[in-house]
C-alpha cells in the first residue's frame, strides 16, 4: 500500500504559542473560498475549515486558565489509511491518499448523505446548508485554485492540497524530483502570526514537523515528545495533527479524555 517515497503530510501546533487570534481561520477562509453569511454565530452551521477552540481548566477565579486550540482536519490515518470518515462514504467522494496522507473530498461527487460527518469525532466536516452567496463584486476575490462548493455537499480542510499540486507542477517543470519543505505550506501555517503552526512531511526526518512531532511509527505515530499529544488519540484515529503544550491540563484535556469522564463520574 505504502509507496516508496510516500509523503505523510502533517502538522504540529504549538499551543504555548497560539494566541487564539483567529488568523489561521481567516487565512483559510480567504485561501479556500469559504463562504460567509450575515449570521455566523451558530458555529454548528458555520463553515470554517479551521476552528479555534477555547479550552478552560475549570478552576475558579483567580486560578482560571484558558488555552486556544486550532483544529483543522486531523487527516486521520487510522489503521492502514482506515480513517473514520473515508471508509464510510458510500459514493467514494472522500479518499485517503496513501502517497500524501491527505484525506480528500470531491465536492462534485458528494451527494450530501453526511455519513462522514457522523463518523468524524472532530467535527471537521461541514455541510453546505445554504447556497454559497457572495455579495455583488465580492466573488472577485475567489481563488481559482479551489473550487467553490455548491449547496448540499460536505466540505473540509484539505491541507491546502491545491498548493501541493502547484508546488509539484513547479518542481516537475523545473525537473526537480522533490517539493522543498517551504514550497508547500498550508494557508494557516503561512498566516499564523505566532508561528505556532508547523507543517511538513512526517516521513521526512529533516522536516521541522517531524523533529517536533517525533512520531513513533511502531505505535501508530504516537509522539515521543513528552510535550506533544494528539486529539482523542485513544480512539485509534491516528491523526497527523500534533499539539504541543507545556501545560499538563491541556494535554490531559485534549488527549486523555478520561479526565472528563472521571469528572463526570465524581
Amino acid at each position: 500500500m505504502k509507496k516508496e517515497n510516500a509523503k505523510r503530510f502533517g502538522m504540529v501546533i504549538d499551543l504555548d504559542k497560539c494566541t487564539g487570534c483567529g488568523s489561521c481561520m481567516v487565512a483559510c477562509m480567504a485561501e479556500n473560498n469559504v463562504p460567509f453569511r450575515e449570521d455566523e454565530t451558530d458555529k454548528l452551521l458555520s463553515v470554517a475549515w479551521m476552528r479555534v477552540y477555547k479550552l478552560t481548566n475549570g478552576k475558579a477565579f483567580p486560578d482560571a486558565d484558558e488555552c486556544f486550540l486550532p483544529r483543522p482536519c486531523q487527516h486521520c490515518e487510522g489503521h492502514h489509511g482506515h480513517s473514520p470518515c473515508v471508509s464510510v462514504c458510500p459514493a467514494t467522494a472522500t479518499d485517503y491518499d496513501a502517497s500524501t496522507g491527505i484525506v480528500s473530498q470531491i465536492y462534485t461527487r458528494c451527494f450530501g448523505c453526511r455519513y462522514c460527518m457522523a463518523a468524524c469525532p472532530y467535527h471537521v466536516r461541514l455541510f453546505n446548508w445554504w447556497d454559497p452567496v457572495w455579495p455583488d463584486g465580492m466573488e472577485k476575490m475567489l481563488n481559482p485554485d479551489v473550487s467553490v462548493r455548491m449547496r448540499g455537499v460536505v466540505e473540509k480542510c484539505s491541507f491546502c492540497f491545491h498548493r501541493y499540486q502547484l508546488a509539484r507542477q513547479q518542481a516537475d517543470y523545473e525537473e526537480r524530483g522533490e517539493v522543498a519543505e517551504n514550497e508547500y505550506q498550508t494557508a494557516c501555517t503561512q498566516g499564523c502570526p505566532a508561528g505556532a503552526i508547523v507543517f511538513g512531511d512526517l516521513n521526512n526526518p529533516d522536516h521541522e514537523v517531524t523533529r517536533l512531532a517525533q512520531p513513533d511509527l511502531s505505535h501508530e505515530g504516537k509522539s515521543r515528545n513528552p510535550k506533544a499529544f494528539r486529539l482523542l488519540e485513544r480512539l485509534g484515529t491516528n491523526t497527523k495533527v500534533y499539539y504541543l503544550s507545556s501545560r499538563e491540563w491541556v494535554r490531559r484535556l485534549g488527549d486523555n479524555y478520561q479526565v472528563k469522564a472521571a469528572q463526570h463520574q465524581a
Partner: peptide, 9 residues
C-alpha cells in the same frame, strides 16, 4: 460510484 466498504452502500 459505490464504495463497497461503506455500510451505507
Amino acid at each position: 460510484h459505490a464504495n463497497v466498504h461503506s455500510m451505507l452502500t
